[in-house]
């Protein structure tokens, strides 16, 4: 017999079974599956960064590509902790591997595949996502359709490999089957008062779309080998004229 339940309980129950059907298995323990993103992880269903899924990043300018590179390496740091390797597939790669060491990624555990055609990139990504010996697969593409993301997403769900798609031409933002759409943009770094030079990298992390989650915007900084969330400040305040400081 049913025990008397409140409406909220029933809705929670139903939501959980919908998530299960969509391939989100409830985590064994939230702490073990954390990727160190702090508050941002709460935006995802079950409060866990979804692995074994495709994440989409907007990457219009080289500055944004650099920000994406830093942010993704920060996540890879956790994903690769079990000793996995990672595949980076692209057509015109400008990523500079030694820089990723700062974000805790061993650059020699990244394997780069440089292809000439978009079709090959998609094929290689799908093949790579089927291979459960990898920690993550990153693909740089200009355009991707719903069907293509669906294929990648299904492959990733099977093998539990996390996929990242960097879209360099986000003018036509078609719907995709990715679990999340990220937009990372640089924020001016902050140093202690009076200190010269450039500080730790900071970004505004925007989750434009999250499947079954809550989109939002956060400020985040990479320091001491981990993500630190920063209080969002009004942009005007950050743009106030500062004196040129030289180290």
């Amino acid at each position: 017999m049913y025990l008397p339940q409140t409406k909220k309980d029933i809705i929670n129950q139903l939501q959980k079974s919908i998530l299960l059907m969509q391939g989100f298995t409830p985590p064994v323990s939230a702490a073990a599956d954390s990727v160190g993103l702090g508050a941002i992880e709460a935006a995802f269903p079950n409060g866990v960064f979804p692995r074994g899924a495709i994440h989409e990043f907007l990457s219009a300018a080289p500055e944004q590509a650099a920000a994406n590179g830093g942010f993704i390496s920060g996540i890879l740091n956790t994903l690769m902790q079990q000793g996995g390797a990672c595949l980076w597939i692209s057509m015109s790669r400008t990523l500079f591997p030694p820089s990723l060491k700062i974000f805790g990624v061993e650059p020699d555990r990244l394997i780069f595949v440089d292809l000439k055609r978009e079709k090959d990139v998609l094929w290689a990504m799908e093949e790579a996502l089927k291979c459960n010996g990898l920690a993550a697969v990153i693909g740089e593409l200009s355009e991707i359709s719903f069907t293509q993301t669906r294929r990648l997403q299904l492959a990733a769900e099977q093998s539990r490999v996390t996929g990242f798609v960097l879209r360099s031409n986000p003018k036509k933002l078609s719907a995709t089957a990715c679990v999340a759409r990220w937009n990372i943009s640089s924020l001016p770094s902050e140093l202690e008062e009076g200190m010269p030079g450039v500080g730790f990298p900071r970004w505004t992390v925007e989750l434009l779309k999250v499947r079954n989650g809550n989109p939002g915007s956060w400020g985040i900084e990479w320091s001491d080998g981990g993500f630190r969330s920063i209080r969002s400040q009004p942009k005007v305040a950050l743009l106030k004229r500062e004196r040129l400081k030289v180290g």
Partner: peptide, 25 residues
């Protein structure tokens, strides 16, 4: 890992071994 090596073989077979790079300092 064996499955990674097999994946790389397949990639090399289709698009050529010269497209796969790994870097050391």
């Amino acid at each position: 890992d064996g499955s990674l090596a097999e994946l790389l073989d397949r990639l090399a077979g289709k698009v050529g071994a010269e497209t796969i790079h790994r870097y050391l300092p």
